[in-house]
Design a protein around this nucleic acid. Structure first.
Lengths: 298, 298
DNA sequence: TTCACGCTTAAGAATATCTTATGTTAATGG
DNA sequence: CCATTAACATAAGATATTCTTAAGCGTGAA
């Protein structure tokens, strides 16, 4: 026999357990009207009243009680089934897929603190430029740099970023760079990412880009930053990756001008991964670290 | 814990039981693409593959098997719960709510045959002009005359109907009525229903209605028919109700002109009532009777 | 080597669901 | 008493999901 109005049954179940439409609505993060409508729909379909609506409280009719005992068994069973799949083969190893640049320039320097807080969890950092397929790869969570919304995974936004020009202090002195137009004579270093090239950056600032020399492209922002540190030229860097070098003096931020990136850093994983204890801990930790970073490098 | 993608779980369950998306789709009366998408959605959400897709057949993964055992328990329980509400307090009494006119002129004369076929079922005919509220009234099924689609009940269409003018043969002779314009001198009988008055009828035929005398209204089409039989005047009748009188000679259909009604007769009841044996039998019987009627009175 | 069959995918259409805003009712307190 | 409040109901329109359509893909059989 086909089952119809599944949601109706589920909403009924939650309402019956709470004996309140309001609380059910709250629990399910919908409005109370939604519950009311679903329950009414179910009652219509079954041709029977399930709740007795009295003043400011509801109670179950005979039919409602009968049905509730079954829905309880049913949905408990479903929950169990789903949560069984959540079992994690290795709860003490956290496998994180990260962009190589973010890994080496941001995450690695900070990971010590995570280990100090949670010594029982060993972290396996997997630098990877491609998108993670959680169905085939055994990854707990990944850090992406993108638009922040994807179809098949849940995401947690971490921070935005912005782009600016930076180089080694000595290089700046050598070439006596003071304003954007001074870039013309220099070797420009850039990432191969489409959103991180000089063309884009200059255009965002309203400058004509074609008058600038072609740049040297690296696959990976960390290489760009390292190139700049090695006085190769002027790098277009992400604040998140370059900040600490600017602070230490290994790099100088060349102009006031900077461009906010369209992309943000975020954590991404299938919904159920976020229920793993180790993943929860990692999320909390990295969010704190992000706040710290933003506070320290504004 | 909140359960998400309930439909996904259900579709998975059906697919897993049939071990075929196609059959599952068939069973659920949706396309196979819908199953594919729901299952994929569930797999994405859980972050695990549930089926192994091989050529022209699917099989369950370990996770799939695990989940399926739970969904089986769950959905069986739901089905039970729902079907328990379907219990009928008195399976041998069929309570039918019908329009008084249809009851007396169409249904009652035929009911003997139902009783002959199913002597164990006693029929309780409840003539009622108002809409039936199945939640408060203890009715198995009702016969309505309307548009054939309602929000809160399932309907089974029986037949359309059409309207024509009829009167007693002697009245026709007396007033020597031969064409529609001859109506002008006569007493017109009509139903109080908005769709069954002379105005509407004449307009449908493209005649000017205002030039005809005001009519005598009765609450209930049977009264209209009976008025005509009693030679009171000319009745606007529904074929379904007048046919047998026309056949027997108690009434004459006055002109060739007739107007198809916007409404149809249909059976209506909450979905679950249709699963009661007595209701099923009644549906079958009345559908046969309708066919018979249409065949005999064309 | 092509056909046929079952699953997948993408895009837009169809439908269901949700929110917003308002109404109803009955207990509560001034 | 009347105003207020809390919980549920309802209508209409916005939103989101779900479905269908139409194409594609891969494989085993003819």
């Amino acid at each position: 026999m086909k089952i119809r109005s599944l949601t109706g049954l589920y909403y009924f179940h939650i309402a019956a357990t709470h004996l309140s439409f309001k609380e059910a609505a709250n629990y399910l993060s919908v409005t109370q009207a939604a519950i009311s409508q679903q329950v009414r729909g179910l009652e219509d379909r079954l041709g029977t009243k399930l709740f007795i609506r009295s003043h400011r409280q509801i109670s179950l009719t005979r039919d409602g009680q009968l049905l509730h005992s079954h829905t309880t068994a049913a949905f408990t069973s479903l929950e169990e089934g789903v949560s069984q799949l959540k079992t994690d083969s290795d709860p003490y190893t956290l496998k994180v897929s990260v962009l190589p640049s973010f890994a080496s320039l941001w995450l690695v320097p900070r990971l010590g603190s995570f280990n100090k807080q949670h010594p029982e969890i060993s972290v396996l950092l997997l630098p990877d430029n491609t998108l993670t397929d959680f169905k085939t790869q055994d990854i707990d969570i990944c850090v992406r740099y993108g638009i922040g919304r994807y179809d098949d995974v849940q995401t947690v936004p971490l921070m935005g970023d912005y782009l600016y020009a930076a180089c080694h202090p000595s290089y700046q002195k050598e070439q006596s760079i003071e304003q954007v137009s001074d870039l013309k004579g220099c070797l420009l270093l850039e990432d191969a990412r489409p959103d991180m090239n000089w063309d884009y950056w200059l255009k965002q600032l309203g400058k004509e880009s074609t008058s600038y020399p072609s740049a040297l492209k690296y696959e990976g922002s960390n290489l760009v930053v390292e190139g700049a540190i090695a006085s190769q030229g002027i790098a277009l860097v992400r604040h998140s990756l370059a900040a600490k070098f600017v602070r230490s003096g290994a790099l100088v931020k060349l102009f006031e001008q900077q461009v906010a990136s369209d992309f943000i850093y975020c954590l991404a994983a299938p919904e159920r991964h976020f229920e793993r204890e180790k993943v929860k801990l990692f999320c909390e930790w990295i969010q704190k670290e992000v706040k710290q970073f933003q506070k320290n490098y504004t």
